[in-house]
Write a protein that binds this DNA or RNA. Structure first.
Lengths: 214, 214
DNA sequence: GACGATATCAGGGTTTTCCCTTAGGTTTGT
DNA sequence: ACAAACCTAAGGGAAAACCCTGATATCGTC
């Protein structure tokens, strides 16, 4: 019986070492490589061609979503499971769009992670039980905010940008993070604020808290 | 030979399980309890009286620093090592002031963590090698090694201003709110950020969350 | 194929923030 | 009383954000 070959992409060494031991306990899995940043992640993926990449979303050099896109391009047979501490649905949408086959929270139980690996290895898609809900009622939730009779829903990009704005990032930092120009960030920010009738950064922060983006 | 009794306070279950296995590998250490939030952390600390608490700084209900204060009050013999993914020295100052005896980054090597546990168990203070530098540049750091609380505290006004900044208010809005000039707001903001070694608005937001200002 | 929604970006002008320095009046501690 | 910390505020230049308009390419849909 062949073992599932797993690549760990995670910049927190302590967590990575822990994961390595957790996986080593599984009879049909083995860790074949490690990476502590997004660039190394896709390089390793290309070289090792693992069955699964366990990918932390927040990593230096190249974030998890970008690294996932790269990996899906270079070797489509390699499946990616995103690992994150954030419940924010913006991340979920992003990584799924990037081509990830799984989404597991760091708060999840080990069994969930193991389940996710098995499911994805068989060709399925695994979404963390806690995150599944936010996917279902995601686009129209802001209706409830202030009891407004709903406006146009935000696009995924707008959610991403607005969420980063709420977390205090400057337009420049957001542009770098998302690899787009500052002008585009301005556009998304202005459009999304207009859609939601938010008039200041403080209202954006408030709204983001309401949405659980923080 | 008696084993060091360790309490794990960490809300990310996956990391916690990993840590448990890492510690189980050490011949002279054992995990005697776990907590996934700040409140449970001090309750468990009181009940179990472990030698060491490995405490994540960002946790639900009560953050790591607050839980540390509580633990130091209730059972002074229990030592706390803070565990964090943040390099910002604001956290370092904060947790040391709260009474922690160690500070280890999640990016650190396992050996560092093990070293930290040994050092602290012997009554010493351990600061992560990567974080130590940020202390060197601060004028008051020699006190840390004497176990004294360190870092210039923020004045009331600075806290007010920084908290409003973190909540997305512009300088102008803050000036109006507090009935002072924009220039004064700039001064308070700059001074407080300098005291805490915060380099961007995003770090201010992060710090504010950590302090529970949001 | 036309349409709407999305995502990208530019130009250009106004406002605000950022960064540096300086400084006077008040409060507090020894 | 004197020092230290605090709160207040200003000038001035560089950088960034804000606000408008307009443009192009890509989707999926009807």
């Amino acid at each position: 019986m062949e073992k599932l070959r797993i690549l760990l992409a995670e910049d927190h060494l302590i967590l990575r070492e822990g994961l390595k031991r957790l996986i080593a306990e599984q009879p049909n899995m083995e860790v074949v490589g490690e990476a502590d940043n997004g660039v190394t992640a896709w390089q390793q993926a290309k070289e090792l061609e693992p069955d699964i990449v366990l990918m932390d979303i927040t990593m230096p050099r190249l974030n998890g979503a970008e690294a996932t896109v790269k990996i899906r391009e270079l070797c489509p047979s390699v499946k990616v499971i995103a690992l994150t501490g954030h419940r924010a649905s913006a991340y979920l949408n992003e990584v799924l769009k990037a081509g990830a086959s799984g989404y597991v929270l760091k708060q999840a139980a080990i069994d969930e992670l193991i389940d996710a690996i098995h499911t994805v290895a068989k060709g399925g898609t695994y979404i963390d039980s806690a995150s599944r809900e936010s996917l279902v009622h995601s686009p129209l939730d802001h209706r409830v905010y202030k009891g407004e009779p709903q406006g146009k829903p935000l696009s995924q990009r707008e959610i991403q940008v607005l969420s980063l704005v709420a977390n205090g990032y400057t337009n420049k930092e957001i542009a770098n993070e998302l690899s787009i120009s500052v002008k585009t960030v301005e556009t998304h920010k202005a459009n999304s604020m207009q859609k939601l009738d938010l008039k200041s950064r403080a209202e954006v922060v408030d709204y983001a808290r309401f949405r659980g983006w923080t």
